[in-house]
Design a protein around this nucleic acid. Sequence first.
DNA 1: TTTTGAGTTGTTCGA
DNA 2: GTCGAACAACTCAAA
Length: 474
Amino acid sequence: MSRKIAIHWFRQDLRLSDNPAFTHAAQHGSVLPIYILDDDNAGDYALGGASRWWLHHSLTSLSQSLGGQLSVYRGDPMDILADILARYDVEAVYWNRCYEPWRITRDALIKARLQREGVTVKSSNGSLLWEPWTIKKADGSPYKVFTPFYNKGCLRAAPPRTPLPEPRIESHVRDDQACTRIEQLDLLPAIRWDKKLESHWCIGESAAYERFTNFMDAALEHYKGGRDLPAKPYVSGLSPSLHFGEVSPHQLWHGIRAFNDDNNVDHFCSELGWREFSYSQLYYFPELPHSNWQSKFDAFPWRDDETALKAWQTGRTGIPMVDAGMRQLWQTGYMHNRVRMIVGSFLVKNLRLHWRHGERWFWDTLVDADLASNSASWQWIAGCGADAAPYFRIFNPVTQGKRFDPDGNYVRRFIPELSRLPDKYLFSPWEAPAPVLQEAGITLGSTYPTPVIDLKASRQTALEAFQSLKNREG
DNA sequence: TTTTGAGTTGTTCGA
DNA sequence: GTCGAACAACTCAAA
């Protein structure tokens, strides 16, 4: 026991600037910055493989920014904090709030325990523009439709704070006695599949801000129309950084608002609004990750088909636009938004497999896997979510390919074995005449799969399946 | 309480 | 090739 210290507990706020809790902690003389890998309390929602890989690099970057003074631990935060309290004179603990149901429960218990021990605990808003309990309808209930949620709820509420500068820390404390090393968190896979991800990403706070700057310089002017073209670099690619808090939505909001370009700027901001809407759904309906938001879907006749699921996961369905997306996911830990809708619609409507299979696979393979966004989006595409796509809206991967990948560059990038196929048949090789396939060096069923399902027939069956739910309560 | 207008992202068919 | 209508009525939000 010596001098008093304050703890800043990093969680999903792996940055130093615009960090409200870290800024509070900095007002104390000595700060112990910590990170705890908590697989104990997460249940089914422990970090997936791709997320763990990202986290490893993000923590490494954060630790460097702190001059190596980040103390990392693994285990139940309750025990770890209690142990720190026993060894240091801790005056206060600061963190930025998380919104996953299991974290809300955990943090409430920890806060009560720390307060009982006479420690000041203060949580802050580090990662949402509008926290869920601040956006409600006049009658106090949450919005169920995006447009009024965003226009009437968010845009008429208090505006998001302007970003905070990086605070100056008088002196860092490092818990050398008990903390472990980032390498010992075992975040990197034993089989080094992550090598292929490395060329696609730069990870950490400064890399995130640089990516944002590049986006504003080069892509923002194309955003509104170009964000739908998966072969083009007209999306921000900031989703993983936003998830881990390497950059805050406040920094993005105010950064982008500085441009005099209403269309693209408003569209980008409304995408941030969709993220907020997902968090609102998760907050008011904590079962969102595993239960249908519209309970009438509990009676939906899902299929069970391990072979088809495997084909979808590995990008071998024989439908090029679907396979390209699934291979982009596997190779890069990311999938373009437009293609996420296409592969999602295909899984739940054509293959008629439960959306939770998709939720689980994305959770494990996406570097931007986020409980709120992932759950809400799968429910949206399945038709059982809030403000969901009408049931008759079934994406046709051939039509979508022709419209959004007109030059075929996206499909050819991720399915090189189809690269010599002319545009006309690129999205439906099963329709190509034999000489055309031969010329392109393709043998269906051998060099590239025949389709696992007939698009037209499965669409019709899906419509009938959705029809069967029509008169149910829910 | 009742009424009214509106609702992220699509596809297919037939004129 | 292009365009509008149908798909199927339903729920939500707010006056």
